[in-house]
Structure formats: C-alpha cells, structure tokens
Amino acid sequence: MGGWGRLWRDPRAVFGLAVLGLSVLAALLAPYLAGDPIVQRDIVATRFLPPLSSDLHGSFHLLGTDRFGRDVWARLVYGARVSLGVGVLAVSVSVLIGVLVGAVAGFWRGWPGVVLLGLTDFALALPRVVLLLLLASLWQPSAGLVIVVLGLTGWMTIARLVHGEVRALSVRPYVESAIGLGAPELRVLLRHIIPNALTPVIVAAALGLGNAIMLEAGLSFLGLGVQPPTPSWGNLIASGRDTLVNAPWVAAAPGVALVLVVVGATLLGDAVRDRLDPALAGRG
C-alpha cells in the first residue's frame, strides 16, 4: 500500500480526516466536553439563552440553550454519539451485505450470479426513502431499527462495485493458478480475491457514511428515527424547528455539524478515489 502517504498532501483528505477525527473524538469524549444533555433545571431562567452566554448559575453555554433550558452544545456532542454511531454501523451492515453479494455474484457467475445481480438491480430501483419511511413507521422507531433499515437499503452500489472487481480479478493468472494448484474455491475467494477487491469499497463506504448520517437525521427529523429525549442531530434539528423564531441556533447548530461531517466524508472519499484512480486505470 505504498503511496498512501501522498494522501496527506491532499487538502481534501486532510480536511476530511480532521473533521471526522474531531467529531469522533468529541463523541467519544462527550462526558468530558459537555454537561448533561438532558437535565433541565430552572427552565424559565435558562431557556433560549443565545450562544456564548452564561446563565444565573454561572454555567457557560457555548451554543446557547433550547426551550427547556438544555445546553445545545451538550446535546450536539451527545447527539454525535448517536448520529455517527448509527451512520457507521449502518454502513458496516451495507458493506458486509454488499461485499458478500458482489463477491458471490462475481465469482460464481452461473445462476447465483444472475439471481444476485437481478436482486441488486431490483433493490437499486426501489425508492429508498419510501421504504425507509414505511419500515421505520411500522415497527417501533429506534436507533437499532434505523441501522438495520439503512443497512438493508444501502448495499447495492457496493455490491455492484465488488462484483466488477471480483469478476476482473477471478480471471487473473494468479487466481487461475491458485485454483489449478487445487486450492478450494472458497479459500481462493476469501484469501486471494476479496482482499484485492476492497479498495473501491473504501470510497463507497466514505460516501455512504455521509449519506447514512443524512438519512438518519431525516428519519429522526420526521419523528421516525431516534426518539427524544435521546439526542440525535436529526431530532435536534426537528426540535429547533418549533423555536426557529425565538432561538434559531437550536436548529442551526446541528445542521452545521451535519454538513461539516458529510462534507468531510465526501471530500475524503473523493481524495481516496483520485488516489486510487491511476491504479485502477493501470490495471487495463
């Protein structure tokens, strides 16, 4: 994997890694960085404080408070745990399914390939948000359900990519010779093909992460995702919607965080893809 060092000279990669790294760090260190995101005391005196102000008790509110006097920064940081966690887990589910489907379809090109490719194309044509809305509303909304639903509706692009890669790799001489030497097919697939087919998956996963975080927020915004009082960026935006006139910062802050993280993931994905492109082109 020589040449990954060059990634550090790409400002997009640096920005993306920095934003994602800082958000993950903030999410992990939430208890040290902020107070309790749910506690409400003395609502009348502490509600709707603008950003950068202190309340009567002397607590400082970096991003102000909401209509219940809760600290917006605390809710943002704790919300990052939920939003990033849901996003990462959902993408992991998608990657797992996508790699499995793509690899099987690319390696065994008989009926398993035809069936799986047909399934992929069909799933790709499904209206994702309609499906999400339906699934999320039919079962009790929760973070776990959002992960499963996002994971189950996001694997198709990855399956397509892996399928292409595996197909190209499986006719390479080293694979044919491995099979000729009597290595079991499954072992060849797992040991020799899949590891070499994973690089484009990184790009797709980075782009998928941004998308998953955005969709989680969308579902939570509609009240079909993570339920209050557990903070997620989506339900924070939704709660800010009602106080747009009095306290615009309540909705603005989580939105800005969301945009930054999605931009970070997208730019990182772009940078990695450009880094990989010459390799992809050189393969012929």
């Binding site: 927020a217 969308g218 935006i237 919607r241 603005a252 997208t266």
Partner: peptide, 22 residues
Amino acid sequence: SVALFAMPGYWLGLMLVMLFTY
C-alpha cells in the same frame, strides 16, 4: 458545490424559512 451536496434539504429549507419568512 460539495457543501450544497452535503446539505440535508429539510435543514436548508428551515434555514431559508428562518431568513425569508421570519
């Protein structure tokens, strides 16, 4: 363009409402 690409529509909508309506 990447910022617009990353922006959730419902949030952008709220911000526009805040500006142009309120």
